[in-house]
């Protein structure tokens, strides 16, 4: 066996190892969800699978309501973010001024601040405007939360588009909206769809704001999971079943779209 072969096998084993470690929590959740509460405390893989936990979870709560809320909040906030981010990134990429770079950095810097720092003002704002525990309220918060990422990513993709293409369109009689619609969106579609996918995943997994700003009416799946951890003790099997149900849809979406996601992430890097 040559050294090159050995190295390849070594890298393979390492890769699988890292992947397994990262996947382990999800695997444990997946396995535990099919155990009884008694079996759940043991890490053993030998047990009789049962759907009891799922049955109990469905009996106790309206899973579909949580799914509906998660979908509504993540999809609508993602669309809103993009609708705002695309024109913003267009102007920053194609009509930059001295402040553009600073503005971009400032937008990103807001993501570095701990969210809990603005919890009280945002909670009070939501309460006073009647948006507490409402889907529109969460949509607004998620949109604002994801906007810097959306603008930053769209800006990066737009920067890859040659300026002359838009100038040619301008001479052809296109206005700013037509430039965006007929040229910018089609040429940066892989990048923008991966941005959208990332925003959906981020919104779907967001727990801090959903736990603090919603309880009954607008609660998404993150709240649904949290409701299985209560002061009387943890019910591992039910908690796992709930978590499994919460992450399954977004994992399915990610699985189907992973090719697109990878393509979008490397868009422009490879010509």
């Amino acid at each position: 066996m040559t050294t090159a072969n050995m190295r390849q096998i070594g890298v393979g084993i390492l890769g699988w190892g890292v992947a397994l470690v990262m996947f382990l929590p999800i695997l444990i959740i997946g396995v535990t969800a099919f155990k009884t509460e008694q079996d759940a405390y043991a890490l053993s893989l030998i047990f009789t699978p049962t759907l009891d936990s799922f049955r109990e979870v469905f009996e106790r709560s309206h899973y579909s309501t949580f799914v509906y809320n998660s979908m509504a909040v993540s999809i609508i906030s993602t669309l809103l973010s993009l609708v705002i981010a695309v024109p913003a990134a267009y102007s920053m990429a194609f009509f930059p001024n001295r402040k553009t770079q600073k503005l971009l950095l400032w937008m990103l810097s807001t993501k570095m601040m701990p969210a809990v720092g603005v919890l009280i003002p945002i909670y009070l704002l939501a309460k006073n405007t009647g948006l507490l525990d409402s889907v529109p309220g969460l949509i607004i918060v998620y949109t604002l939360m994801n906007l810097p990422i959306a603008v930053w990513m769209a800006f990066t993709y737009f920067n890859e588009v040659p300026k002359e293409i838009l100038e040619a369109a301008r001479i052809d009689g296109a206005n700013a909206w037509q430039e965006i619609w007929h040229l910018l969106l089609p040429t940066t579609l892989p990048g923008l769809s991966s941005t959208a996918l990332l925003l959906i995943i981020l919104s779907w997994n967001e727990a801090f704001w959903s736990l603090n700003l919603s309880s009954v009416n607008a609660a998404p799946l993150t709240v649904f999971i949290a409701s299985y951890s209560n002061p009387e003790g943890l019910f591992w099997a039910k908690l796992s079943a709930a978590s499994f149900l919460a992450v399954a849809p977004i994992m399915a979406v990610g699985w189907v779209a992973q090719k697109q996601l990878v393509r979008g992430m490397t868009f422009g890097a490879v010509k």
């Binding site: 002359e164 293409i165 040619a168 301008r170 001479i171 052809d172 007929h182 089609p186």
Partner: peptide, 20 residues
């Protein structure tokens, strides 16, 4: 007058064709 109303047409160094 905006570019499109000047009665001009331009050919760019990079051609600037619409790639899609």
């Amino acid at each position: 007058v905006p570019a499109s109303k000047r009665g001009i047409a331009m050919v760019f160094q990079s051609y600037a064709l619409y790639p899609h």
